[in-house]
Design a protein around this nucleic acid. Structure first.
Length: 486
RNA sequence: GGCCCCGUCGUCUAGCGGCCUAGGACUCUGCCUUCUCAAGGCAGCUACGAGGGUUCGAAUCCCUUCGGGGCUACCA
């Protein structure tokens, strides 16, 4: 290895929202750059103008920011190798295409899509490797004139020489492709726009990328990319190093989709997964720090991440494990952090409007629920009882407190609670235990369930006495009275 | 079909020839704790795809086979 600094790029083609697989790739790219003290470059591959939209590009930028995967070169931050949107680099690609044409490394191909399809069809039937048959490789000027006279348009095709391409993949070792199975490929469309194969290769070289860590679906396109480097006149020692990451698959079998584990990262954000939890979980898909370590911070990830420890086999996405990690991360939050994350969910659910008194109360209540939730979207549901002005008992719980036994418990509670002067959860609990458990001889479970329903409206709530304390004496007594009237 | 990649519990993984009667985590089951729900603790279930080699010894090396996936576009 030489001493040049590592530069890793994440170069998505935003034809949709970034999904879990993309993010995992971005995470590894970022972690590797940070681990080596190198540069993390973010580039948008928007050469497929039919499918890429501005909204998706913007969403990709936002997603990376939200996850905390900061980049050193790319959209918004700029850099000396920009622009970083391929759609703004069209003249560069055109220049190289012309150079390849001049060097006879590339040639114009006048075959129509229908003709190409017919060739492929024939190849399939004949059971030979499908691919371009080299029809226009060595056209005479007369043939070219004839095609032009027919009004045919042409694409630019790269000439693939005989032989083979072998490269060393950091994850898979030496990989070799015989050129018999790598047909001449298109660099420029008939409309003059560049294709991925041209643009990536040119940009990786021009932007001085040293390491290409990307999905394994691109593994078989690597020989084509290397062919472009050659045509560019780049010395082999200056080629980027490749590492093809294994897939992240859905729960069932194949590709990740809406059906098996939500694919879009926006969904996780809405559900209340923490960026750090997502990154931690994703880091464990196809990589492991070893030593039975699993729960790590972003910082630890950058310290421990190496490509050598990345797997070559694909991993299945498991929502349950993500949830478990998210729960751990939530529990590890300080109350102020937890508050910061929770507030948007509470206001969005209209549980609070955002006044300082409300926030004060939320802050006191948060410790009660911190170990009871796995995603932030549960926060409103769990704290709602503290803020409702029109108190109501859950429909399915009403029948549990209308029997005479429950009425008895509630009546006695009212009497005892009225006598509690210092409204603290310790005093509330002491008063209630003495009267209901010791004197009436009730089982705690029975007695407190009735009270829980009467004060919080549900059979499930944060710890009872703490909840009552936060609710306040007046509200508690009022609610119990309401419940008694049911 | 062809080319390429991949194969340890249900899932993510540890393992790089002896420490493996295969370890951890998630899930699941049971128990403990307990004012509900959680959290926590303890215990249990379950894996080296198969077949051949190499070796004193293989999850680890080699071969074959089976299985999964990717590519085979004027997508990326």
């Amino acid at each position: 290895m030489n001493a040049k600094t590592v530069k890793v790029r994440f170069a998505p083609s935003p034809t949709g929202e970034l999904h879990v697989g993309n993010i995992r790739t971005a995470l590894f790219d970022w972690a590797y750059a940070r681990h080596t003290g190198g540069v993390f470059l973010f580039r948008i591959e928007d050469t497929d103008t039919d499918r890429v939209t501005d909204e998706y590009i913007q969403a990709a930028i936002e997603t990376l920011k939200w996850l905390g995967l900061d980049w050193d070169e790319g959209p918004e931050v700029g850099g000396e190798n920009g622009p970083y949107l391929q759609s703004q680099r069209l003249d560069i690609y055109a220049e190289y295409a012309q150079k390849f044409l001049d060097q006879k490394d590339a040639y114009y191909c006048y075959c129509s899509p229908d003709e190409l399809e017919a060739v492929r069809e024939a190849q399939r039937k004949a059971n030979v490797a499908p691919g371009y048959n080299g029809h226009c490789r060595d056209l005479t000027q007369a043939q070219i004139d004839a095609y032009k006279a027919q009004g045919r348009s042409a694409v630019v095709r790269m000439r693939m020489p005989d032989g083979s391409t072998t490269f060393t993949d950091l994850i898979r070792g030496d990989v070799s492709f015989d050129h018999n199975f790598v047909p001449d490929f298109v660099l420029v469309r008939a409309d003059g726009s560049p294709l991925y194969t041209l643009a990536v290769a040119v940009d990786d070289i021009l932007m001085k990328v040293t390491h290409v860590l990307r999905g394994e679906d691109l593994l078989s396109s690597t020989p084509r990319q290397i062919r472009v480097y050659q045509a560019m006149g780049v010395a082999p020692k200056d080629y980027p190093v490749f590492a093809h990451l294994p897939f992240v698959m859905g729960t069932d079998n194949a590709k990740l989709s809406k059906r098996n584990g939500e694919a879009s990262i926006a969904w996780y954000r809405e559900m209340g997964f923490l960026p750090e939890a997502i990154c931690n979980y994703l880091a464990l898909l196809g990589w492991s720090p070893g030593d039975d370590v699993e729960n790590i911070t972003m910082k630890e990830l950058t310290q421990m991440f190496t490509v050598e420890k990345v797997h070559s086999s694909p991993a299945r996405f498991d929502m349950k494990k993500l949830e478990a990690i998210n729960g751990d991360k939530i529990r590890a939050l300080t109350i102020d952090e937890f508050l910061k994350w929770s507030l948007p969910f509470l206001t969005k659910a209209n549980v609070i409007q955002g006044s300082s008194q409300e926030i004060e109360l939320v802050k006191k209540a948060l410790p009660l629920i911190q170990e009871r939730i796995i995603v932030l979207s549960e926060v409103p549901k769990m704290l709602k009882f503290l803020f409702v002005t029109e108190f109501e008992v859950d429909a399915e719980s009403v029948s549990k407190i209308t029997d005479s036994g429950s009425k008895e418990i509630l009546k006695r509670s009212v009497k005892e609670l009225e006598g509690v002067s210092q409204w603290s959860h310790e005093n509330i609990e002491a008063a209630l235990r003495t009267s209901l458990i010791e004197e009436l001889g009730l089982k705690p479970r029975i007695a407190f369930t009735a009270l829980r329903i009467a004060t919080t409206g549900s059979t499930i709530s944060p710890p009872l006495f703490e909840s009552m304390e936060l609710l306040g004496k007046e509200a508690c007594l009022a609610r119990i009275s309401t419940a008694l009237a049911l």
